[in-house]
Write a protein that binds this DNA or RNA. Structure first.
Lengths: 244, 244
DNA sequence: AAAATAGTGTCTATCAGACACTATATA
DNA sequence: TATATAGTGTCTGATAGACACTATTTT
C-alpha cells in the first residue's frame, strides 16, 4: 500500500514525477435532451478538439474536491450536484510530457447554467449527447463509461430525482428516464411502478398549478423519498444482447 | 484532464511530488470459505497490523500491470487471474510523509497457492473473510467495497466461473455463489436457473468420474459459456433493506 | 366539443422460489 | 439397505408490460 515499499529499496522520490488529474463527465438535461459539459482545447496536443473539463489536483484537496472545483470553475456552481468517482487511467505515454494518472468523475444536476470558458480553454459548452464530435485523448471512452454508469444507476438508485426540481411530477421523473435511457416508457406502467417502490418518492399533498400545456388534469407533486436503493429496481427495457 | 492546466500557470512539477500506489483485494476460495490475501506490516506506521498487498507503480507500467505484479509478488502466479479496478483514494494526509494516491484493484482466481512474504512485509497469508483483524489504513473500507463488488458481479456476470476449474459441475458453481454471498441456495432451483441463462455454461458431454463422497449420481460437467452478461441475472436472495 | 394527459384497473407472460419426486451413486 | 446427491416436474406469488378506461384540464 502506502509505505511498505520504502523499506524495500523503492523510493518513489527517485522516480520521474507523477501528476494526478481529475476529469469530469458532467451531465444535465436541457430542453429535453441529455447534455455533457465539454471544453475546447486551446493548445497542443489536440488543440481545437473538444475534451472533458479537468485539471491537476492541488496539494490540499481530496480527489472529489478537485472534481467539484473543476466543475465549479466551468459552470460557476456547486449546489445540488451529485458527484461520484468513475475510474482511473494511468497508461505510460498517455501524455507525451510526463506521467499522468487521471481520475474520472461523474456529475449530474438539474438546470445547470451555461458554462464560462476557463482561462485554460478556448471555449466551454453543453453539448447534446447525440451530436458529439470526436473527443481528445481517451475521453470518448471515459464519457461512454460515465453514460453507462448513469444509465445503470437510474435502475437501482433514486438518482433520477437529482435531475429534477425539489418537487416534481411523476411525468417529469419519467422524462428523466426517457432522456437518459433514450427510450420512450409507458406512462401508466411507469407511474404505478414508481409509486410501488418503497421510499422512492413521497407525496406532498399538492398538485401543479394548472394542467399541461396541451390539456390534462393537474398532476400531484412529489419529493424524493429516503430510499438509497430501489427495491425492486426499475429495469431498462430488454436490451437484446445476444451472446456470441 | 491532461495538460490544459500547463497553459494556465499550473506547473505540477512545482508541486510536492505525488506518489501513486495500487492496493489489491485478492479473493479466492479455500476449503469452502472465502479468503482474502493480506500482508503483515513490518514497519511504522501500523507496524504489526495486517494490510492489503500493494505498492508503488513503476515508470513503465500501466495501472493494471502494477496490480498484477503486486499480486504475483505475493502469490507467485498470474494465470487465470481476473483483475478489475475498484476505486481511487487521495485524501491529503493519508500518509504522513507525502501525498499518496492509491488505486485499488479487485482480483479473483481459483485455488491460489499459499503466499510467500515479500521482502517488504513481515508475513503474508490468506485469511478467512469472516475472521479478519482490523486492517491498517483505510483498508477495511477498500476490502468492503471489493467484497460488495464481487458479490454484485456474481449476479449479472459469469464471474463465478473464474472461481472454479475449467470444467465444473453445477453444484461446484453453486458452491461459489453460496461461499461469496454467504447464504445457502436451493439446489434444484439454482440448477434450472443456471441452465436457463443463455451462454452462462455449456455442456461438455462428460460427467464426473464417480458420485459425491457421500453418495449420489455422477454430475454432468460444464465449461464457461461465451456470455459476458447474464440475462436474466441471478439475483441474491432479497436483502430486506427497509428504507429509513 | 375535441384533444391531451393523470391516474387506475385488469389481464398475461415470465420468473423466483417452494416443494416434491426420480434416479443414481456411496457407505 | 440407508442415505445423500443430481436433476426434473409442478405449483404459487410477484412483477413487467400491454391494453383499456375514467377523470380532468386546455384550446
Amino acid at each position: 500500500m502506502d509505505d511498505s515499499e520504502f523499506l524495500a529499496g523503492y523510493d518513489p522520490r527517485a522516480f520521474p514525477a507523477v501528476a494526478v488529474t481529475v476529469d469530469v463527465v458532467a451531465l444535465t438535461i436541457r430542453e429535453g435532451a441529455l447534455h455533457v459539459l465539454l471544453v475546447e482545447r486551446g493548445e497542443q496536443p489536440h488543440a481545437g478538439r473538444w475534451a472533458l473539463p479537468g485539471g491537476f489536483i492541488r496539494p490540499d484537496e481530496d480527489l472529489p474536491e478537485a472534481a467539484a472545483r473543476e466543475l465549479a470553475e466551468e459552470t460557476g456552481l456547486a449546489p445540488r450536484v451529485h458527484i461520484e468517482q468513475l475510474a482511473s487511467y494511468g497508461a505510460p505515454g498517455r501524455d507525451p510530457r510526463m506521467r499522468i494518472v487521471s481520475v474520472s468523475y461523474l456529475a449530474f444536476a438539474p438546470r445547470l447554467p451555461d458554462p464560462r470558458a476557463g482561462s485554460d480553454a478556448a471555449d466551454a459548452a453543453w453539448r447534446r449527447i447525440d451530436r458529439l464530435p470526436e473527443l481528445a485523448f481517451d475521453h470518448d471512452r471515459i464519457l461512454g463509461e460515465g453514460l453507462e454508469r448513469a444509465r445503470a444507476k437510474l435502475e437501482y438508485t433514486p438518482l433520477a430525482t437529482t435531475f429534477v426540481d425539489e418537487t416534481f411530477t411523476i411525468t417529469e421523473l419519467r422524462g428523466v428516464y426517457e432522456t437518459v435511457w433514450g427510450v420512450p416508457l409507458h406512462a401508466g406502467n411507469f407511474h404505478r411502478k414508481v409509486l410501488s417502490v418503497p421510499g422512492f418518492v413521497e407525496g406532498t399533498g399538492q398538485t401543479t398549478e394548472g394542467g399541461g400545456t396541451r390539456g390534462g388534469p393537474r398532476a400531484r407533486l412529489y419529493r424524493a423519498g429516503d430510499a438509497r436503493l430501489l427495491h425492486p429496481a426499475l429495469l431498462r427495457p430488454a436490451r437484446e444482447e445476444a451472446a456470441g
